[in-house]
Computed example of a mutant assay.
Amino acid sequence: MIGQLSGTLIAKHPPEIMIEVNGVGYELQMPMTCLYELPDVGQAVRVITHFVVREDAQLLYGFNTFAERSLFRQLIKAQGVGPKLALTIMSGMTAHQFVHAVTHDDVSSLVKLPGVGRKTAERLVVEMRDRLSNWGSMTPASDAMPIDFGDLRPTLSGPGSARDDAFSALVALGYKPAQADKSVAAAVKALGDDAASEEVIRQALRSLAG
């Protein structure tokens, strides 16, 4: 099983990335809340991974911390939640926001996520409450020690590229094209034409969750 990758970030196409490790490029999918924290392309990166083997595919999912991966693994054990929906949930809110929603029976926040209806949200609250009771202990000490990547600045994309990347990311996460197009257009208008893809996606997700 592949549990961690350390190498060079060579591509970002949200929600997918590619990391080169000793000449081999590994493709991963990441929650947007994790992808936001990555350095620029060409920089060193370490990603905690979860490996999924299916009859028709072998998939890698990446996270910045062991706690985030633990939450993903708990989510895919829940009834009706597969890796794709788990990725969408963790893209729409951080791990700690999800835990807060579960522990406070905040169904209304969960139903704003694509693919999460009221019944699914209520089931998640019931199923995940006990599993997340020891959430604090899921985070190893190493999670509290961020990797120092130096003075990194976001890579800026042209307006067309950022808009296209953001639209593709939201559709991949399960949002309807019309929803994605409207929220991305509003995000670009609010942030300006020089905004990076990650900034546009973050702003669009905030508006969709509002």
Rank of each mutant, 00 (worst) to 15 (best):
M18L: 01
S142H: 12
L191R: 13
W135G: 10
I48V: 15
A178G: 09
I17P: 10
A141Y: 09
A144V: 02
Q203A: 13
Q97M: 09
V41I: 15
A95Y: 04
H13A: 13
A180D: 06
G25D: 02
A204N: 02
Q203D: 08
A204K: 08
K112V: 09
S142E: 14
L191D: 11
S109V: 02
A169Q: 08
N64H: 10
G150K: 11
A67F: 04
V52F: 08
G23N: 06
G80V: 10
I89A: 08
H96F: 11
Q58L: 12
A11F: 05
A11V: 00
I10S: 00
I147T: 12
V47M: 06
Q4C: 09
I19W: 05
P177M: 14
A186Q: 01
F51C: 03
K77S: 04
V188F: 00
E68G: 08
T155A: 10
V111Q: 13
I10L: 04
D130A: 15
L191M: 13
T155I: 10
G115S: 07
P159N: 14
I19V: 11
F149K: 15
L71R: 08
P159A: 15
R129C: 00
L132V: 09
V171M: 13
A57G: 11
Q79Y: 01
D164W: 03
G25Q: 01
G62C: 14
D130Y: 10
E199Q: 15
D56G: 04
L60D: 04
A204F: 09
I89M: 14
A95D: 03
L28Y: 11
L156A: 03
D164E: 07
G160I: 03
E37Q: 15
V45R: 15
L28P: 03
A67Y: 00
Q79I: 06
V200G: 13
A121K: 12
G210H: 14
L208S: 05
W135V: 12
A11G: 00
L75C: 10
I201L: 13
K77N: 05
Y61F: 14
K119H: 10
L156D: 01
T88M: 01
A178L: 15
D193W: 06
A162Y: 05
Q79S: 14
N64P: 00
D106M: 03
T33A: 01
D165W: 04
L152W: 11
I147N: 07
D56E: 11
G210M: 14
A78V: 07
I2L: 09
A180M: 03
H96P: 05
E127L: 14
D143P: 03
S142Q: 14
E68H: 12
L110S: 03
D106A: 04
L170A: 05
I201Q: 13
L71P: 06
R46S: 06
K119A: 11
D106Q: 11
P154T: 03
R123W: 12
V200E: 13
H96Q: 15
V53L: 06
Q203F: 07
V184R: 14
D40P: 10
R202Y: 05
G25S: 03
L205D: 00
M128D: 10
R129I: 02
A185W: 02
Q4H: 10
I48T: 15
V184D: 09
V171Y: 07
